[in-house]
């Protein structure tokens, strides 16, 4: 199929191609590295960010603590803004997190951990002054984090990537930690499952998106057999019970009466399938919220009337607020931020 070539000519062709391809490869790595460097320089139109003290302690004013994604030296650090001036100057803490949540003086920070031959992730429990109290290795890429209202329990969810050729299997691992006793439930998959009134067990069960009711009870998403379920969990009994289907990433309102969540709506594109809803736990009635875009986030309640969530933005993600009763329209709370917690 080819013209006969001498070994010498073959080697010349190979070496030439190697030089060209090595050049292309090097250029692509340098280009990507340069782009990352630019992100470490302050953007002229971004919010001002200065280093300082960030506290998770109750009191000391209503404020938002979140992952700052604005370019500059404080990118990806936990930062704080006053709740009544969210687009104003930010105070950054020096603690880097991919995902974060906090309540009652306890923070959970899911962060990247550099290794010698592989990068890993870990969950760090922070006290009110952002000092590390404990840390735990994570088996995958962080996606959700929550703390119970009392600050005692922490939960997190990670994606575990597939190991087959072309990485096609994804699963999640969700853990719950009692920060007072140090007892770690490494995966909810070990809990007993009651589905539609019957015990259930399967190898394809996945859990994600825990939200705590108190220090013993929680809600979460369970997936099995291509369906998602809302489950209510009982931590001391190590048991979950299904409540209804097609409900992901529940978030319990501060008064404990409603769950805000994302729901797969038929007819939407496969990679943007969700709309936001609120479920009234007393009547089990769903109300669609006035967000026309697909949201892939676990919502946070600003108060009993308003929810906060992230959408992709120019610098990673922006935060939006929306009334929880289906009225109004989305309002951009701040740019270049992710994983908010309302404190104080």
């Amino acid at each position: 199929m080819t013209v006969r070539m001498t070994l010498r000519n073959k080697l010349i062709v190979l070496v030439t191609a190697l030089v060209v391809l090595a050049g292309v490869a090097t250029a692509s790595v340098l280009h990507a590295a340069g782009r990352e460097d630019r992100k470490n320089r302050v953007q002229a139109d971004g919010p001002p960010v200065t280093g300082g003290e960030v506290s998770l302690a109750p009191g000391s004013g209503r404020r938002i603590v979140f992952r700052n994604m604005a370019w500059g030296p404080h990118r990806d650090e936990l930062a704080t803004v006053p709740a009544d001036g969210p687009s104003g100057p930010r105070t950054a803490s020096g603690v880097k997190c991919l995902r974060f949540y906090a309540a009652a003086g306890t923070g959970v920070c899911l962060q990247a951990e550099r290794g010698a031959v592989q990068d890993g992730y870990r969950a760090v429990i922070l006290d009110a002054r952002l000092k590390e109290r404990a840390h735990y290795s994570l088996p995958g890429i962080p996606t959700r984090a929550r703390v119970s209202p009392s600050g005692r329990l922490a939960a997190w969810t990670v994606f575990v990537g597939g190991d087959s050729y072309a990485g096609t299997n994804f699963s999640t691992r969700t853990a719950i930690l009692d920060t007072r006793t140090g007892k770690l439930t490494k995966t909810l998959e070990d809990f007993a499952i009651e589905r539609d009134g019957h015990p259930y067990r399967a190898s394809d069960v996945n859990f994600w998106g825990v939200t705590f009711a108190d220090d013993e009870h929680f809600y979460a998403t369970m997936a099995t057999g291509k369906k998602t379920y809302l489950v209510r969990g009982d931590l001391p009994a190590r048991k979950v019970t299904t409540l209804r289907t097609n409900l992901e990433c529940p978030s319990l309102s501060p008064d404990g009466t409603r769950l805000a969540f994302k729901k797969r709506v038929p007819g939407l594109p496969a990679d943007a399938p969700w709309r936001l809803y609120v479920l009234d736990l007393a009547t089990m009635r769903e109300t669609p919220l006035a967000e026309p875009r697909s949201v892939d986030d676990q919502l946070v309640w600003q108060n009993d009337r308003t929810v906060t969530y992230s959408l992709p933005g120019d610098y990673g993600a922006d935060l939006y607020t929306l009334p929880a009763d289906g009225t109004g329209s989305p309002h951009r709370l701040l740019t270049a931020g992710l994983a908010p917690a309302y404190l104080g």
Binding site: L98, I141, T143, F159, A166, T168, N169, A223, D271, D296
Partner: peptide, 14 residues
Amino acid sequence: VTGLGLSPLGFGLL
């Protein structure tokens, strides 16, 4: 997950 911000769960890619 981090580059495209997608939740790959629930889709078998293949």
